[in-house]
Design a protein around this nucleic acid. Structure first.
Length: 426
RNA sequence: GGAGGUGUCGCCUAGUACGGUCUAUGGCGCCCGCCUGCUAAGCGGGUUUCGGGCUAAUACCCGAUCGUGGGUUCAAAUCCCACCACCUCCGCCA
């Protein structure tokens, strides 16, 4: 949710933001009307209720005829109070419903437009020239099968399409990546967390995943729980309905969890291998901070993501995501796109969002600052989505014979091993 | 899954059998002040939280808030119903 005061004092700014997102601008006017109705509803309820309480006190003290007279009067008032409360509740509910539809305010400077309009801010590393090296690169699945690292067929047999087994070297790679990620997050001062990956509707709703992204979420009907698509959800909900001491900010958490995604509407897209799957494991970075520090923290998250990709020797670009492609919660988003040799293009591997106070307001996360209790800012960023990172390692570090060089940074977590080589598998 | 118990303003706690100055008690902690070579102790005052109003700002005023949501009633911490969380025991289980 955005700040209701901004809506009242500067509705044009909200309209601009809605327009930049490609969302309905008339929602802003509906919200303004709902807000007004809500405030006047509450106000008339409070007035009546004060009167009722006062009468109640008199009744408590009175006796005999006096009491009977007061009781007769107060009965009618009670009916009015009840009605006023019902009206106020209805107006409040309407306002809340509309508020939740409104996306976060886009930060100035975010490029306008949709998916194609993101701006490349920087490029790091140089894609290999396989032609110059004299061989045609194999794609990650071919390499994965040669190495005995990825088994899609059995994944499909057991769980269906878009499921996989990581076997032998594949499993080792994921665990090495995970260990490497852990050592980095500790070095950067994050608290490592293993959060629950099933959450209640409130957590999903509060993080903004039940809006336009709802069709992509797995739900367990029998238990009314959701499977999270990212550790962002349990990490954001961790402090829900809490008031934190400002002196404990910023708080840096790094969560390792599975990510479950229905990938509805992506039929036929990226169907080969483990590029787009229904489940993968991921290290996610999460920050709670003073809204004043949010943009600086956002830059830091991006730095960490860049450092990780650089250490793994993967060429990548940084994209400033356009306003129409931000999702509900983000006010600004930077994606890292890594070079995928067999597609000769950069593909998304990480994404970091500054959600400002949007999620905190929905989840009731506040902090006690010198100037009072205010919602704080939340930010998140991918550190390592295992399947995508494995793809990038396999393809970028492959050799002519199908073996794959292990970047130095990962070797300590693989017993010093320098490469994986093709094997006979069954 | 079965049986029983508990849930009060940071923590502990009084209040719930019998609805009405509960406008929620007391202690700890914390904040301010006094006293004081300095600290401690002592003394006095303040302290649920949230939303709103009014202020230059304090002060002050109004509403909500006793796990959550409903209900009964003129009136609910207190009575009724549902749900949630935690604890104990039993069963099952990595």
């Amino acid at each position: 949710m955005i700040d209701p005061k901004v809506l009242r004092t500067d509705p044009d700014r909200v309209r601009r933001s809605q327009k930049a997102r490609g969302e309905s601008v008339s929602l802003v006017d509906e919200l303004l009307a709902a807000d007004e109705a809500r405030r006047s509803g509450i106000s008339s309820f409070e007035t009546l209720r004060a009167e009722q309480k006062d009468l109640g006190r008199q009744v408590a003290k009175a006796t005999g005829d006096e009491k009977a007279a007061l009781l007769a009067r107060t009965k009618e008032l009670a009916a009015q109070v009840k009605q006023a409360q019902a009206d106020a509740d209805a107006a409040e509910a309407r306002h809340l419903e509309l508020s939740k539809q409104l996306g976060n305010l886009v930060i100035d400077g975010v490029p306008e437009g949709g998916e194609e309009d993101g701006v490349v801010l920087e490029s790091h590393g140089t894609p290999r020239d396989f032609a110059a090296e004299g061989f045609e690169p194999r794609d990650h699945l071919e390499l994965g099968e040669m190495l005995g690292a990825i088994d899609m067929e059995r994944g499909a047999k057991v769980s269906g399409s878009r499921f996989y087994y990581l076997t032998g070297p594949g499993a080792l790679l994921e665990l090495a990546l995970s260990q490497f990620a852990l050592s980095k997050v500790l070095e950067w001062g994050f608290t490592p967390m293993i959060p629950p990956s099933l959450v209640k509707p409130a957590a999903m709703e509060g993080t903004g995943f039940l809006g336009q992204a709802a069709q992509d979420v797995y739900r367990l009907e029998a238990d009314d729980l959701y499977l999270v698509g990212t550790a962002e959800v349990p990490l954001a909900a961790y402090h829900s309905d809490e008031i934190l001491d400002a002196s404990t900010l910023p708080r840096h958490y790094a969560g390792l969890s599975p990510a479950f995604r229905r990938e509805a509407g992506s039929y036929g897209k990226d169907t080969r291998g483990i590029f787009r799957v229904h489940w993968f494991d991921k290290w996610e970075l999460f920050v709670y901070c003073d809204p004043d520090q949010a943009e600086a923290e956002h830059d830091r998250l991006l730095q960490f993501e860049k450092e990780f990709l650089t250490a793994l020797e993967i060429p990548f670009q940084v994209l400033d995501v356009a306003s129409g492609d931000l999702g509900l919660s983000a006010a600004r988003k930077f994606d890292c796109y890594a070079w995928l040799p067999t597609q000769s293009r950069y593909r998304e591997v990480t994404s970091t969002s500054n959600c400002t106070e949007f999620q905190a307001r929905r989840l009731g996360i506040r902090a006690r600052f010198d100037d009072g209790v205010r919602p704080l800012a939340t930010l998140n960023g991918t550190l390592c989505a295992m399947t995508r990172m494995i793809i990038m390692l396999l393809e970028n570090h492959q050799q002519a014979d199908g073996s794959v060089r292990i970047p130095e940074a990962l070797r300590p977590y693989l017993g010093g091993r320098e490469s994986f080589t093709p094997v006979e598998v069954h």
